[in-house]
Amino acid sequence: MKAVHKRTPVLKDCPTHYCPGCGHGIAHRILAEVIDELGIQGRTIGIAPVGCAVLAYNYLDVDMIEVAHGRAPAVATGMKRTNPDSIVFSYQGDGDLAAIGTAEILHAAHRAEPLTVIFINNAVFGMTGGQMAPTTTLGQVTATTPAGRQARGEGYPLQVSEILALLPGTVYVERCALSGTVSIKRAKAAIKHAFELQMDGAPGLSLVEVLSPCPTYWRMSPGDAMKWIKEEMSQVFPIARLKG
C-alpha cells in the first residue's frame, strides 16, 4: 500500500479548537499543503488575525505573529519591507478584513504591497457568537439580526474582493469556496498561484477570498452549510477570478 494523501508536516500534529465542520480546518490544511509543495516553509511569515483563527499559529508550522484586530496587512507590510526575501501572508476572517480592518487592506492594496492575503469569508462574526458581519447576506438570520438582515437599516453585503480588484495595486484577486471537493481543489490552486506571484516578485497584492462554512452560527449541519454556500452564498459572492 502506498499513501496517496496524508497529513502535511507544515500542519502541526495536534487537534484544532474549531467547531465540527468548520471551514478554517480545511483552509489551514490547503494552505499548509501549498507551503509544503512550494518548499517555502523556512522563509514564510504568517500573520494571524483576531477571530476564530486567532490560534492559527498553533496549527501552522511556520513563523507567525499575532496582531491587533484588522491590522494584519499593516504588520505584513512592515514584515515584507524589512524581510524582502520572506514570503509574507496574512490570514484574515471577514470580521477582521471586511469590518475593522477595511482601511488597512484597502491601503495595503492601494500601496501595491507584494503580500498574499487569505480572506476567509463566512458571513458572520464567529468567535464572538455569530453576530452580523458586513458580509452577512440579505435575509440571513444572525444573533443581531433575528428577523434576517434588511438592506434598510443594516445595509448590503460588502464585496471587498470586487472593490480591491478595481485598484491598480492588486495583481491577483480570486474568490473561491469550500463547498465540495472540486471547489476545495480550486481554492488550493488559487492560494498556490497567489504565493507563486509573491515568490516571482509580482508588483502588487494578491488576495484569495474563500467562502467558508460556519455550521454552528448558520445553525445548519456541516453538509447543509456546504450546500448553502453553493446555492445561496455564491449568488451574493460570485465564485470568479476577479483579476489577474
Binding site: M1, K2, A3, V4, H5, T16, G21, G25, R29
Partner: peptide, 19 residues
C-alpha cells in the same frame, strides 16, 4: 479517490492505494 481526505476539516484521514 481521497475525497474524504480533501473535505476533512481536521486532516485526520490518510488514504492509501494498493499499488
Amino acid at each position: 479517490c481521497a475525497q474524504c481526505a480533501i473535505v476533512c476539516p481536521e486532516g485526520i484521514i490518510e488514504v492509501c492505494w494498493d499499488d
